[in-house]
Each structure stands twice: as C-alpha cells, then as structure tokens.
Simulated assay, not measured.
Amino acid sequence: MEPITIADADVPALGFGTAGMDTDEERYDAISAALDAGYRHIDTAQMYDSESAVGAAIADSGLDREELFVTTKLDGGNRDHEAVVDSTYESLTRLDTDYVDLLLIHMPDQEPSHEETLDAMNELVSEDVVKHIGVSNFSVEETKNAIEHSSAPILTNQVEYSLAERQDDLLSFCIDQGVMLTAYSPIKLGDRLEDDVVQETADTHGKTPRQVAIRWLLQQPYVSTIPRSSNPEHVRENFDVFDFELTDEEMRRLFATEGDLDDALASKLGL
C-alpha cells in the first residue's frame, strides 16, 4: 500500500474504523482481524469506547508500534485546555502507547473555542505525545480557520465522504491546502450499491461494489478512507483493493452517479 505523505507523515491510505461496535469482544475481534488482514492505520475515538480494544489488539498482534498509525479523537466534553491534555493522557493509557500519531477535534459545534482546543493540542505535539493533529466534520471555513490558528499543520479533516455523499468543495480545498481528507462511512452507499455503473465497474474488475467504492476514494489525491466492519470476511474484502485500478473514464462515470463533476475539481483530480 502506498502511503499518503503529508506534513512529514506517511499515512496508510486505507485504515480501519472502530465506531459502532457494541462490546469489547466484538471490537477486539474486529481490530485483530483488521491487523491480520494487513491494515496498519487504526481509527478510534474517546466516544467510541474502543480505545482499550485497540490497545489490546495491537499488543497481542506482535506488531511493532512504529508499524502502525493510530488516530483518536477528543470527546465533545474534552475541549478546554485542561480536559484536552488530561483526556489525551487517559487515551494513551487505554491505548497502551506512549503516543498517538493523530489527534482530532471530533466535532466543530462544541464549546469552548477551537482556538483553546488547538492550543492544547499543539502543546501535546510539543511534548511528543501527539505526532500530528487534525479536525473532523469541519466545513471549509472551519478548516481554514483551524489551519490559520494552529502552529502545527492540520493533517486531515475526517468527514463522511463516499459515492453517495460527495464533498466536492471540501475536497478541492484540501487538495489546494495539502490537507488529507479522511473519508468515513465509505461504503454507506444505499442504492448506489445497485447502481448500474457501480455494478458494471465491479463486474469488469471481478470485484464487489464495495471494493469499487473504496478504490474510487483511494485513487483521489489526498484522500484516505477508514471502512469498518465487525465481519472478518468483510474486513478482508475491504482491504482487498490493491490488485486493480480504475481507469480515468471509470472514475469519471463513478463521479457522475452523484451529479456533475466541476471542471476545476476534475482537473485537480487528473480527470
């Protein structure tokens, strides 16, 4: 897997999400299956209750910590300076690690100000317990303001992005600014899974519609994605996307399933 190199970080473009699982056993088994399948980018959050399972699965995997890229996110109630610092150290304990590769503001709509939160996150970067920082669910304007305020680069904005949920303005902005767009819910596609273009593309490559949807994301500049599943077969299926490549025409046709693609963005995408 070719990483996305951005802000002096090499980020595996395909990661594994850990939201929406009900029990520690389910989380541990899913994360272990992901690590066995080859995922080296694991995404968690304080609100997911999955940090301990991530830490345990990593410890039991036999992998060196340096082989992995681990992301977590601040809970909405942990946004003032003291809470950012204290809760991040608590996350490190649950994750059984000395550092996280990436710490995100999870949502843009909580107090106190983003500036106070970012100041504390930058302090953690200076202490080397957080390697990189970013945001999640931010608009273009909110991302721009975070970039302007933070002394450390904003590595990513993690948002819902898929064939059924385009983010054209944000993607264009991220490409211009050198910010990674991390796509969550990449296979939450609804009727897109049965779309003729998606199905025909899948048939052409001997792949599933879900694999086509993930590959479509990975071929876009500055885009990473973090599919999730507690089904080991689906975990492996979602990772099995590196032995085929979509043509430019296929990429354009897939974009067109959710409306026209602006010429300026098409140019930035090399399409």
Rank of each mutant, 00 (worst) to 15 (best):
P227H: 07
Q220H: 12
E233P: 00
E233V: 13
D195S: 12
T201A: 12
L246R: 05
E258G: 05
E200S: 15
T225M: 08
R215I: 10
T225G: 04
A213I: 10
F239A: 02
H205C: 12
D260L: 07
L217S: 06
P209Q: 03
H205P: 13
A256P: 02
A213C: 13
F242W: 14
V223D: 03
N238A: 07
P209V: 05
G259K: 00
E200K: 15
Q219C: 10
S229G: 09
R253H: 09
E194F: 13
L254E: 01
L218S: 04
L261G: 02
N231G: 06
S229L: 05
F239L: 09
E200L: 07
T208D: 09
G259W: 07
R253L: 08
R228E: 11
V197K: 04
K207V: 04
S224F: 00
F239M: 00
T257L: 03
S229A: 12
L261W: 02
A256N: 04
V223M: 05
V212P: 01
I214G: 07
T204N: 14
F244A: 01
P227C: 06
D196L: 07
G206D: 01
S229K: 02
E194T: 12
P209K: 03
E233I: 09
N231Q: 15
A202G: 11
T247G: 05
V198H: 08
P221A: 07
